[in-house]
Design a protein around this nucleic acid. Structure first.
Length: 114
DNA sequence: CAAATGACATTCT
DNA sequence: TAGAATGCCATTT
């Protein structure tokens, strides 16, 4: 609860729990772009923890302030979403992400600079 | 402290 | 190309 500002600011600070770091990184995903669970995990220094990232986003208590809908599977598949996959796809389209039937066009991940 | 769980990723059929 | 089988990590029981 004390890292709230950092999280919403997209600031990953040592001392935060894994999930909090995940949320912080998620905030740094520019609108119109998407990142894979694996990319987020790697950015946090834990390559292979993609699955754990999914768990964190699933429990994301700061939605929609934390754009968890910008995180997709490695193939660009719209894997899971608390509010329902259709909702997730809709949000992405709103932001201008090219979607094609439960699949988004993968693009190089560009973390927002602080 | 061991076992189970899940919004993943990779590889093999 | 689609579906099943394994491996992985952090969190929750």
């Amino acid at each position: 609860m004390q890292f709230l500002d950092d999280i919403l600011a997209g600031r990953v600070v040592p001392g935060m729990n894994f999930n909090q770091k995940v949320w912080a990184m998620t905030v740094r995903i520019p609108a119109g772009k998407v990142a894979t669970y694996g990319q987020v995990a790697k950015a946090l220094g834990s390559p292979g923890a993609a699955r754990a990232v999914g768990n964190a986003l699933n429990k994301n208590p700061y939605a929609p302030r934390v754009p968890c809908h910008r995180v997709v599977g490695s193939t660009g598949s719209l894997t899971g979403f608390a509010g329902g996959l259709p909702k997730k796809q809709q949000l992405l389209i709103e932001e201008g992400v090219a979607c094609a039937a439960h699949r988004v066009v993968m693009d190089r991940v560009e973390w927002v600079e602080l």
